[in-house]
Design a binder for these strands. Sequence first.
DNA 1: ATTGATTGTCTCTTACAAGAGACACATGTA
DNA 2: TACATGTGTCTCTTGTAAGAGACAATCAAT
Lengths: 267, 267
Amino acid sequence: MQDVNAQAEWPAVSADEERPANSREKGLNRVLHILEFLHATQRAIGIGELAKGVNAPRSTTYTLVRDLVDAGLLEMAGDGNRVYFGKKLYLYGMAYMRGNDLLRRGRQEVDTLSHETGETSELCMLQSGRYTIVHSSPGTRPFRISSATGLQIPLPWTASGRLLLADFERSRIEAMISEEDLVLPDGRRLVLNDFIDDIARARVTGYCVTSGLVDAYTKCLAAPVFSAPGKVEATMCLVVPIDTSDERTGELIALLRERAARLSIAA
Amino acid sequence: MQDVNAQAEWPAVSADEERPANSREKGLNRVLHILEFLHATQRAIGIGELAKGVNAPRSTTYTLVRDLVDAGLLEMAGDGNRVYFGKKLYLYGMAYMRGNDLLRRGRQEVDTLSHETGETSELCMLQSGRYTIVHSSPGTRPFRISSATGLQIPLPWTASGRLLLADFERSRIEAMISEEDLVLPDGRRLVLNDFIDDIARARVTGYCVTSGLVDAYTKCLAAPVFSAPGKVEATMCLVVPIDTSDERTGELIALLRERAARLSIAA
DNA sequence: ATTGATTGTCTCTTACAAGAGACACATGTA
DNA sequence: TACATGTGTCTCTTGTAAGAGACAATCAAT
């Protein structure tokens, strides 16, 4: 975009960053892309397809995948020529959870909350500029609304997103939210300024409710979990039918805020 | 087959081959060592110390850690200059679990089994040549015997180890078991041939019991989980006091085998 | 048989990352 | 005050890994 100097491509002097055209990629970056790609597809995938998916040369992909399989980060799936995440990643993930008070206790709280209320409950965090469902517990409704752990969706689509950005400056928010993030699944388009106003409001009230944003049938109630005074580390939220009465909604919000506050105590 | 050395890399290498003296290391390998090291220490660690721990140059370690932190695989711990596993690893790990029927159902079975019996129960698998506790549930005894998930210990120390190797040829077993693996924590030394005989016996009986191997107070009961006819994919085991009566032991083994068989059905 | 799309392995070149080491800070302790 | 030890950043060199591409083998559909 900035790099308009049209001469020989190679003199890699792009002082800014990124994009030295079609140069080589570092192996580690390839690996990170591979992991992200597998996380997105959520299932085992052939190596050729994987190479296409991460836009890497086939030969490189083969060697990297072999290294990763040997290391146990990936595993060959049953059929023979597909790969997916490996046991090692599971073990590292469990180690992370054990070492992380907030996550460990948050999962607990979420599970009991959804058990008590019968509604779907989630623990959410900010992860590389997006809203991420870190843990969710389905609830007991006949038609339950559930989302997969690890799902990442644009911040403006959610109540939690408004709380997670509570302590960010306007400029950082603007940098973080792209144009597409403002377009809802049904095509409606949010206005950035409205979103930023929402954030300010959420910060003051200490909770946030959104209705019919990601889909037309649900309402999302969220409350902040603080890791330090003023610093929102996570949110707990409840996903309820959009026609839930105001009274019950109020009760649920109170309960939710209490539990979120309980999580905030330690840090 | 290659590079099963869990850790403790030092200049003097006793591996079968490779090692062109003090050559450069590939970044990806450094990263794999870093992850293994963090898994071993089980807590956040300073970058300098980490560099020492994986025997890598400081400058390299700094750049790699920065890359990994940016990617979310690692996180800086609260104080500021320590690193540990990051959220991404947790998310990948959960994705692995979701995609892995055996693991998901195995965790369930283990939890209910320990709940029903009151004893510590574990799901174990073979991971890079060692016995690995993939999930464990503590049981309800006043003094419960528990081990951390992800713990890796030598195969000959455990009942599960004897089952996990049931379908391996003698030569592969010999290659997999090092001299140190045969030395128990209390200094006693097992004989490789006895161990291999144990394996053959375990294959026939369909379960395995060891007494006072890793410590003097416990007995370990294990049953195989098959992913295909003849192929042991995992084991379920119970860790009970060594003075448990033969009668109760028998009952527990029967229960254990039933549950392990249940896990084996799908594959 | 003919084509066309896959998959897995191997060779060779060169762009680039790993690493050595200097630097400017911070500590702590004699 | 010196002196040692640790931390985080930066520069420059050179060994090497990323990548292009050739190869044989497989499977389907003409």
